[in-house]
Design a protein around this nucleic acid. Structure first.
Length: 387
DNA sequence: CAAACGTGGCT
DNA sequence: TAGCCAAGTTT
Protein backbone atom coordinates (compact mmCIF):
# COMPACT_ATOMS: atom_id res chain seq x y z
CA UNK A 1 0.00 0.00 0.00
CA UNK A 2 1.36 3.43 -0.91
CA UNK A 3 2.37 5.44 2.16
CA UNK A 4 0.25 8.44 1.37
CA UNK A 5 -2.89 6.34 1.53
CA UNK A 6 -2.25 4.72 4.92
CA UNK A 7 -4.59 7.03 6.71
CA UNK A 8 -7.46 6.15 4.41
CA UNK A 9 -7.27 2.41 4.82
CA UNK A 10 -9.36 1.15 7.66
CA UNK A 11 -7.51 -2.13 7.50
CA UNK A 12 -4.93 -3.48 5.10
CA UNK A 13 -6.98 -6.41 3.78
CA UNK A 14 -10.56 -6.07 2.60
CA UNK A 15 -13.24 -3.76 3.97
CA UNK A 16 -13.31 -2.00 0.63
CA UNK A 17 -17.03 -1.77 1.10
CA UNK A 18 -16.81 -0.13 4.49
CA UNK A 19 -14.33 2.42 3.17
CA UNK A 20 -16.62 3.27 0.27
CA UNK A 21 -19.63 3.59 2.55
CA UNK A 22 -17.66 5.92 4.79
CA UNK A 23 -16.55 8.11 1.88
CA UNK A 24 -20.07 8.25 0.50
CA UNK A 25 -21.34 9.42 3.89
CA UNK A 26 -19.07 12.45 3.56
CA UNK A 27 -20.79 13.59 0.36
CA UNK A 28 -23.72 16.01 0.38
CA UNK A 29 -25.41 14.20 -2.47
CA UNK A 30 -27.94 16.88 -3.40
CA UNK A 31 -25.32 19.62 -3.48
CA UNK A 32 -22.84 17.44 -5.38
CA UNK A 33 -25.38 16.60 -8.08
CA UNK A 34 -26.37 20.24 -8.50
CA UNK A 35 -22.80 21.54 -8.69
CA UNK A 36 -21.82 18.84 -11.17
CA UNK A 37 -24.86 19.10 -13.44
CA UNK A 38 -24.98 22.91 -13.40
CA UNK A 39 -21.36 22.99 -14.50
CA UNK A 40 -22.05 20.47 -17.26
CA UNK A 41 -25.06 22.37 -18.58
CA UNK A 42 -22.95 25.53 -18.75
CA UNK A 43 -19.62 24.18 -19.98
CA UNK A 44 -20.29 21.05 -22.03
CA UNK A 45 -18.68 20.91 -25.47
CA UNK A 46 -20.78 20.99 -28.60
CA UNK A 47 -20.26 17.54 -30.04
CA UNK A 48 -22.02 16.03 -33.06
CA UNK A 49 -23.48 13.13 -31.07
CA UNK A 50 -25.05 15.60 -28.65
CA UNK A 51 -27.31 17.10 -31.32
CA UNK A 52 -30.10 14.76 -30.33
CA UNK A 53 -30.78 11.65 -28.27
CA UNK A 54 -31.32 9.20 -31.13
CA UNK A 55 -30.31 5.90 -29.45
CA UNK A 56 -28.64 4.75 -32.67
CA UNK A 57 -26.42 7.83 -32.80
CA UNK A 58 -25.63 7.60 -29.10
CA UNK A 59 -24.75 3.95 -29.59
CA UNK A 60 -22.44 4.61 -32.55
CA UNK A 61 -20.68 7.42 -30.69
CA UNK A 62 -20.16 5.31 -27.57
CA UNK A 63 -18.61 2.47 -29.55
CA UNK A 64 -16.32 4.88 -31.42
CA UNK A 65 -15.28 6.59 -28.20
CA UNK A 66 -14.08 3.37 -26.59
CA UNK A 67 -10.36 3.90 -25.94
CA UNK A 68 -10.39 6.68 -28.51
CA UNK A 69 -10.08 10.46 -28.20
CA UNK A 70 -12.95 12.82 -28.90
CA UNK A 71 -10.93 14.78 -31.48
CA UNK A 72 -10.18 11.59 -33.37
CA UNK A 73 -13.79 10.41 -33.31
CA UNK A 74 -15.53 13.59 -34.52
CA UNK A 75 -14.73 13.28 -38.26
CA UNK A 76 -15.35 9.53 -38.23
CA UNK A 77 -18.71 10.01 -36.53
CA UNK A 78 -19.84 12.66 -38.99
CA UNK A 79 -18.89 10.58 -42.00
CA UNK A 80 -20.45 7.47 -40.47
CA UNK A 81 -23.79 9.25 -40.00
CA UNK A 82 -23.58 10.61 -43.56
CA UNK A 83 -23.05 7.11 -44.90
CA UNK A 84 -25.51 5.42 -42.55
CA UNK A 85 -28.05 8.02 -41.30
CA UNK A 86 -30.33 5.47 -39.64
CA UNK A 87 -30.02 2.15 -37.88
CA UNK A 88 -31.56 0.42 -40.88
CA UNK A 89 -29.08 2.03 -43.27
CA UNK A 90 -26.22 0.59 -41.27
CA UNK A 91 -27.89 -2.79 -40.85
CA UNK A 92 -28.16 -3.10 -44.62
CA UNK A 93 -24.61 -1.99 -45.40
CA UNK A 94 -22.08 -4.51 -46.68
CA UNK A 95 -19.01 -5.58 -44.75
CA UNK A 96 -16.54 -3.83 -47.06
CA UNK A 97 -18.28 -0.50 -46.53
CA UNK A 98 -18.51 -0.75 -42.75
CA UNK A 99 -14.81 -1.59 -42.47
CA UNK A 100 -14.00 1.34 -44.74
CA UNK A 101 -16.04 3.57 -42.42
CA UNK A 102 -13.82 2.40 -39.55
CA UNK A 103 -10.49 2.42 -41.43
CA UNK A 104 -7.84 4.05 -39.24
CA UNK A 105 -9.94 4.08 -36.05
CA UNK A 106 -8.51 0.85 -34.66
CA UNK A 107 -10.05 -1.97 -32.64
CA UNK A 108 -11.90 -3.15 -35.71
CA UNK A 109 -13.92 -5.81 -33.90
CA UNK A 110 -15.94 -2.85 -32.63
CA UNK A 111 -17.49 -2.19 -36.02
CA UNK A 112 -18.06 -5.86 -36.81
CA UNK A 113 -19.77 -6.35 -33.44
CA UNK A 114 -21.78 -3.16 -33.96
CA UNK A 115 -22.91 -4.35 -37.36
CA UNK A 116 -23.95 -7.72 -35.96
CA UNK A 117 -25.77 -6.08 -33.05
CA UNK A 118 -27.56 -3.54 -35.24
CA UNK A 119 -28.78 -6.31 -37.53
CA UNK A 120 -30.00 -8.10 -34.40
CA UNK A 121 -31.91 -4.99 -33.30
CA UNK A 122 -33.45 -4.62 -36.76
CA UNK A 123 -34.60 -8.24 -36.86
CA UNK A 124 -35.52 -8.89 -33.25
CA UNK A 125 -36.58 -5.48 -31.94
CA UNK A 126 -38.09 -3.97 -35.06
CA UNK A 127 -35.18 -1.51 -35.37
CA UNK A 128 -35.79 -0.04 -31.92
CA UNK A 129 -32.75 -0.13 -29.62
CA UNK A 130 -33.91 -1.96 -26.47
CA UNK A 131 -34.13 0.10 -23.27
CA UNK A 132 -33.66 -2.58 -20.64
CA UNK A 133 -30.27 -3.52 -19.14
CA UNK A 134 -30.95 -7.22 -19.75
CA UNK A 135 -31.74 -6.88 -23.44
CA UNK A 136 -29.22 -4.22 -24.38
CA UNK A 137 -26.40 -6.08 -22.62
CA UNK A 138 -26.97 -9.12 -24.82
CA UNK A 139 -25.97 -7.16 -27.92
CA UNK A 140 -22.49 -7.85 -29.27
CA UNK A 141 -19.97 -5.21 -28.29
CA UNK A 142 -22.23 -3.70 -25.64
CA UNK A 143 -20.48 -4.19 -22.32
CA UNK A 144 -21.30 -2.69 -18.91
CA UNK A 145 -20.09 0.80 -19.80
CA UNK A 146 -21.84 1.09 -23.16
CA UNK A 147 -25.07 -0.39 -21.80
CA UNK A 148 -25.14 2.21 -19.03
CA UNK A 149 -24.20 5.03 -21.39
CA UNK A 150 -26.99 4.28 -23.87
CA UNK A 151 -29.59 3.65 -21.18
CA UNK A 152 -28.81 6.87 -19.32
CA UNK A 153 -28.08 9.21 -22.24
CA UNK A 154 -30.68 8.03 -24.74
CA UNK A 155 -33.37 6.76 -22.37
CA UNK A 156 -32.83 8.68 -19.14
CA UNK A 157 -32.43 5.54 -17.03
CA UNK A 158 -30.42 5.88 -13.78
CA UNK A 159 -27.77 3.32 -14.73
CA UNK A 160 -24.04 3.72 -14.03
CA UNK A 161 -21.73 4.24 -17.03
CA UNK A 162 -18.29 3.68 -15.59
CA UNK A 163 -15.38 4.43 -17.90
CA UNK A 164 -11.82 5.54 -17.27
CA UNK A 165 -12.89 9.13 -16.65
CA UNK A 166 -15.49 8.16 -14.09
CA UNK A 167 -13.03 5.95 -12.23
CA UNK A 168 -10.43 8.71 -12.16
CA UNK A 169 -12.89 11.38 -11.02
CA UNK A 170 -14.56 9.26 -8.36
CA UNK A 171 -11.29 7.73 -7.16
CA UNK A 172 -10.31 11.29 -6.24
CA UNK A 173 -13.59 12.55 -4.91
CA UNK A 174 -14.09 9.48 -2.73
CA UNK A 175 -10.40 8.52 -2.29
CA UNK A 176 -10.78 5.04 -3.69
CA UNK A 177 -7.37 3.38 -3.98
CA UNK A 178 -8.28 0.12 -5.69
CA UNK A 179 -6.26 -0.63 -8.82
CA UNK A 180 -8.44 0.65 -11.67
CA UNK A 181 -6.72 -1.73 -14.08
CA UNK A 182 -8.36 -4.67 -12.33
CA UNK A 183 -11.72 -5.78 -13.81
CA UNK A 184 -13.48 -6.21 -10.45
CA UNK A 185 -12.69 -2.63 -9.46
CA UNK A 186 -15.33 -1.36 -11.88
CA UNK A 187 -17.99 -2.81 -9.61
CA UNK A 188 -16.87 -0.60 -6.74
CA UNK A 189 -17.34 2.47 -8.91
CA UNK A 190 -20.70 1.26 -10.17
CA UNK A 191 -21.78 1.00 -6.56
CA UNK A 192 -20.58 4.54 -5.95
CA UNK A 193 -22.45 5.87 -8.99
CA UNK A 194 -25.65 4.12 -7.95
CA UNK A 195 -25.36 5.89 -4.61
CA UNK A 196 -24.70 9.30 -6.13
CA UNK A 197 -26.52 9.44 -9.47
CA UNK A 198 -29.26 11.99 -10.04
CA UNK A 199 -32.56 10.25 -10.72
CA UNK A 200 -33.86 13.53 -12.03
CA UNK A 201 -31.23 13.75 -14.76
CA UNK A 202 -29.13 10.59 -15.06
CA UNK A 203 -28.01 11.58 -18.57
CA UNK A 204 -26.45 14.86 -17.50
CA UNK A 205 -25.00 13.29 -14.36
CA UNK A 206 -23.14 10.51 -16.20
CA UNK A 207 -21.98 12.76 -19.00
CA UNK A 208 -20.89 15.41 -16.49
CA UNK A 209 -18.67 12.91 -14.68
CA UNK A 210 -16.99 12.03 -17.98
CA UNK A 211 -16.80 15.63 -19.19
CA UNK A 212 -15.22 16.63 -15.89
CA UNK A 213 -12.65 13.89 -16.31
CA UNK A 214 -11.88 15.04 -19.84
CA UNK A 215 -11.70 18.79 -19.17
CA UNK A 216 -10.82 19.36 -15.50
CA UNK A 217 -10.03 16.22 -13.56
CA UNK A 218 -7.34 15.07 -15.99
CA UNK A 219 -4.77 12.33 -15.36
CA UNK A 220 -1.65 14.49 -15.22
CA UNK A 221 -2.32 17.89 -13.74
CA UNK A 222 -5.94 18.18 -12.67
CA UNK A 223 -7.26 21.78 -12.75
CA UNK A 224 -8.59 21.61 -9.21
CA UNK A 225 -8.82 25.41 -8.94
CA UNK A 226 -11.42 25.37 -11.72
CA UNK A 227 -13.27 22.31 -10.48
CA UNK A 228 -17.00 22.74 -9.87
CA UNK A 229 -16.99 19.98 -7.26
CA UNK A 230 -13.75 20.86 -5.53
CA UNK A 231 -15.52 21.30 -2.20
CA UNK A 232 -16.74 17.70 -2.41
CA UNK A 233 -13.36 16.24 -3.31
CA UNK A 234 -11.80 14.24 -0.48
CA UNK A 235 -8.50 13.77 -2.33
CA UNK A 236 -8.16 17.52 -2.87
CA UNK A 237 -8.87 18.10 0.81
CA UNK A 238 -6.00 15.77 1.63
CA UNK A 239 -3.77 17.10 -1.15
CA UNK A 240 -3.38 13.68 -2.77
CA UNK A 241 -5.34 14.20 -5.98
CA UNK A 242 -2.33 13.62 -8.22
CA UNK A 243 -1.61 10.28 -6.53
CA UNK A 244 -4.97 8.91 -7.68
CA UNK A 245 -6.20 6.80 -9.32
CA UNK A 246 -3.98 3.84 -8.51
CA UNK A 247 -3.15 1.91 -11.67
CA UNK A 248 -0.65 -0.91 -12.11
CA UNK A 249 1.83 -0.77 -14.95
CA UNK A 250 1.11 -2.28 -18.31
CA UNK A 251 3.30 -4.94 -19.87
CA UNK A 252 5.79 -3.96 -22.53
CA UNK A 253 5.22 -4.73 -26.19
CA UNK A 254 7.20 -7.38 -28.05
CA UNK A 255 8.86 -6.95 -31.46
CA UNK A 256 7.58 -8.92 -34.45
CA UNK A 257 9.70 -8.81 -37.63
CA UNK A 258 7.60 -8.66 -40.80
CA UNK A 259 8.65 -8.96 -44.46
CA UNK A 260 6.12 -7.40 -46.84
CA UNK A 261 5.99 -6.87 -50.59
CA UNK A 262 4.14 -4.69 -53.05
CA UNK A 263 3.72 -6.92 -56.08
CA UNK A 264 2.66 -5.45 -59.44
CA UNK A 265 1.60 -7.37 -62.54
CA UNK A 266 1.94 -6.43 -66.23
CA UNK A 267 -1.46 -4.72 -66.12
CA UNK A 268 -0.30 -2.35 -63.37
CA UNK A 269 -2.45 -4.10 -60.80
CA UNK A 270 -1.34 -4.82 -57.24
CA UNK A 271 -1.74 -8.00 -55.24
CA UNK A 272 -3.68 -7.63 -51.99
CA UNK A 273 -4.76 -10.18 -49.41
CA UNK A 274 -7.72 -10.23 -47.06
CA UNK A 275 -6.76 -11.09 -43.49
CA UNK A 276 -8.38 -13.82 -41.45
CA UNK A 277 -11.81 -13.17 -39.96
CA UNK A 278 -10.32 -13.64 -36.50
CA UNK A 279 -7.57 -12.00 -34.51
CA UNK A 280 -5.50 -8.92 -35.23
CA UNK A 281 -6.94 -6.57 -37.89
CA UNK A 282 -9.55 -9.16 -38.81
CA UNK A 283 -11.01 -8.91 -42.33
CA UNK A 284 -8.86 -5.93 -43.31
CA UNK A 285 -6.80 -6.01 -46.52
CA UNK A 286 -3.01 -5.96 -46.68
CA UNK A 287 -0.03 -6.40 -48.95
CA UNK A 288 1.36 -9.95 -48.87
CA UNK A 289 3.62 -10.33 -45.86
CA UNK A 290 5.09 -12.89 -43.50
CA UNK A 291 6.20 -12.90 -39.93
CA UNK A 292 9.86 -13.83 -39.56
CA UNK A 293 10.11 -16.55 -36.96
CA UNK A 294 13.78 -17.03 -37.51
CA UNK A 295 16.00 -14.00 -37.89
CA UNK A 296 18.73 -16.11 -39.44
CA UNK A 297 17.95 -16.30 -43.15
CA UNK A 298 17.86 -13.32 -45.55
CA UNK A 299 14.46 -11.59 -45.55
CA UNK A 300 14.07 -11.56 -49.30
CA UNK A 301 14.64 -15.29 -49.57
CA UNK A 302 12.35 -15.95 -46.63
CA UNK A 303 9.52 -14.06 -48.34
CA UNK A 304 10.07 -15.81 -51.67
CA UNK A 305 10.07 -19.23 -50.03
CA UNK A 306 6.99 -18.44 -47.94
CA UNK A 307 5.13 -17.07 -50.94
CA UNK A 308 5.89 -20.16 -53.01
CA UNK A 309 4.66 -22.41 -50.21
CA UNK A 310 1.50 -20.39 -49.67
CA UNK A 311 0.43 -19.80 -53.26
CA UNK A 312 2.42 -22.31 -55.37
CA UNK A 313 3.81 -19.44 -57.43
CA UNK A 314 7.33 -18.07 -57.83
CA UNK A 315 7.90 -14.46 -56.87
CA UNK A 316 11.00 -12.32 -57.30
CA UNK A 317 11.66 -9.41 -54.98
CA UNK A 318 13.88 -6.56 -56.08
CA UNK A 319 14.71 -3.55 -53.94
CA UNK A 320 13.75 -2.86 -50.35
CA UNK A 321 11.99 0.52 -50.41
CA UNK A 322 11.17 1.09 -46.75
CA UNK A 323 11.72 -0.10 -43.21
CA UNK A 324 9.21 1.06 -40.66
CA UNK A 325 8.00 0.34 -37.16
CA UNK A 326 4.31 0.13 -36.40
CA UNK A 327 3.27 0.13 -32.76
CA UNK A 328 0.20 -1.73 -31.55
CA UNK A 329 -1.02 -1.85 -27.98
CA UNK A 330 0.59 -5.22 -27.37
CA UNK A 331 3.29 -5.59 -30.06
CA UNK A 332 5.49 -3.79 -32.57
CA UNK A 333 5.75 -4.75 -36.21
CA UNK A 334 9.26 -4.16 -37.57
CA UNK A 335 8.35 -4.04 -41.25
CA UNK A 336 10.78 -4.45 -44.10
CA UNK A 337 9.00 -3.81 -47.42
CA UNK A 338 10.15 -4.86 -50.89
CA UNK A 339 9.09 -4.29 -54.47
CA UNK A 340 8.56 -7.38 -56.58
CA UNK A 341 6.83 -9.25 -59.37
CA UNK A 342 5.56 -12.74 -60.18
CA UNK A 343 7.28 -15.07 -62.59
CA UNK A 344 4.03 -16.91 -63.37
CA UNK A 345 0.33 -16.37 -62.70
CA UNK A 346 -1.33 -17.54 -59.50
CA UNK A 347 -3.96 -20.21 -60.13
CA UNK A 348 -7.52 -18.90 -60.06
CA UNK A 349 -8.52 -21.44 -57.41
CA UNK A 350 -5.67 -20.31 -55.18
CA UNK A 351 -6.58 -16.66 -55.65
CA UNK A 352 -10.05 -17.46 -54.38
CA UNK A 353 -9.19 -19.83 -51.55
CA UNK A 354 -6.42 -17.61 -50.22
CA UNK A 355 -8.42 -14.37 -50.41
CA UNK A 356 -6.12 -12.72 -52.92
CA UNK A 357 -7.05 -10.02 -55.40
CA UNK A 358 -5.39 -7.96 -58.14
CA UNK A 359 -6.53 -4.35 -57.99
CA UNK A 360 -5.63 -1.14 -59.78
CA UNK A 361 -4.29 1.86 -57.91
CA UNK A 362 -7.76 3.41 -58.03
CA UNK A 363 -9.58 0.29 -56.87
CA UNK A 364 -7.23 0.04 -53.92
CA UNK A 365 -9.05 2.93 -52.29
CA UNK A 366 -12.26 0.97 -51.90
CA UNK A 367 -10.64 -1.51 -49.55
CA UNK A 368 -9.98 -1.00 -45.85
CA UNK A 369 -6.31 -1.26 -44.89
CA UNK A 370 -4.71 -1.03 -41.46
CA UNK A 371 -2.60 2.08 -40.96
CA UNK A 372 0.60 0.01 -41.10
CA UNK A 373 -0.16 -1.02 -44.69
CA UNK A 374 -1.29 2.49 -45.62
CA UNK A 375 2.21 3.53 -44.59
CA UNK A 376 3.72 0.87 -46.86
CA UNK A 377 1.61 2.04 -49.79
CA UNK A 378 2.42 5.69 -49.21
CA UNK A 379 6.11 4.93 -49.07
CA UNK A 380 5.88 2.83 -52.24
CA UNK A 381 4.22 5.66 -54.14
CA UNK A 382 6.72 8.20 -52.91
CA UNK A 383 9.62 5.98 -53.89
CA UNK A 384 8.39 4.99 -57.34
CA UNK A 385 6.61 8.14 -58.47
CA UNK A 386 3.35 6.99 -59.95
CA UNK A 387 1.40 8.87 -62.55
C1' DC B 1 -8.52 -13.06 -14.66
C1' DA B 2 -4.86 -11.64 -17.95
C1' DA B 3 -4.22 -10.85 -22.47
C1' DA B 4 -5.69 -9.56 -27.01
C1' DC B 5 -7.20 -5.89 -29.53
C1' DG B 6 -5.26 -0.01 -32.92
C1' DT B 7 -4.07 4.37 -33.25
C1' DG B 8 -2.31 9.02 -32.52
C1' DG B 9 -1.13 12.61 -29.32
C1' DC B 10 1.44 14.15 -25.48
C1' DT B 11 5.42 14.41 -22.19
C1' DT C 1 12.89 8.80 -26.81
C1' DA C 2 9.91 5.47 -24.76
C1' DG C 3 6.06 5.21 -22.18
C1' DC C 4 1.55 6.62 -20.95
C1' DC C 5 -2.82 7.67 -22.09
C1' DA C 6 -8.16 7.87 -24.36
C1' DA C 7 -15.91 7.66 -23.46
C1' DG C 8 -13.88 -0.88 -23.12
C1' DT C 9 -15.21 -5.61 -24.71
C1' DT C 10 -14.22 -10.27 -25.56
C1' DT C 11 -12.16 -14.58 -24.59
Amino acid sequence: MPNFLKGFNICGGKKVNDKLEQSLLNIDKESFQNDLIDWFEAEQRNLPWRENKDPYRVWVSEIMLQQTRVDTVIPYFNRFIEWFPTLDDFAEADEEKILKAWEGLGYYSRVRNLHSAVKEVKETYNSVVPDSPEEISKLKGVGPYTAGAILSIAYGKPEPAVDGNVMRVLSRILVIDEDIAKPKTRKTFEKAVRALISHENPSAFNQALMELGALICTPGKPACLLCPVQKHCQAFAAGIQTELPVKIQKKKTRDVPIVAAVLKNERDEFLIHKRSSEGLLANLWEFPNYEMHTSIQPKRAFFEASFLESYRTDVKLSDSFTMLDHVFSHLVWKIDAYRGSLLTDIEESVMKEQNLKWVSKEELEQYAFPVSHQKIWKSYQQTYVMD
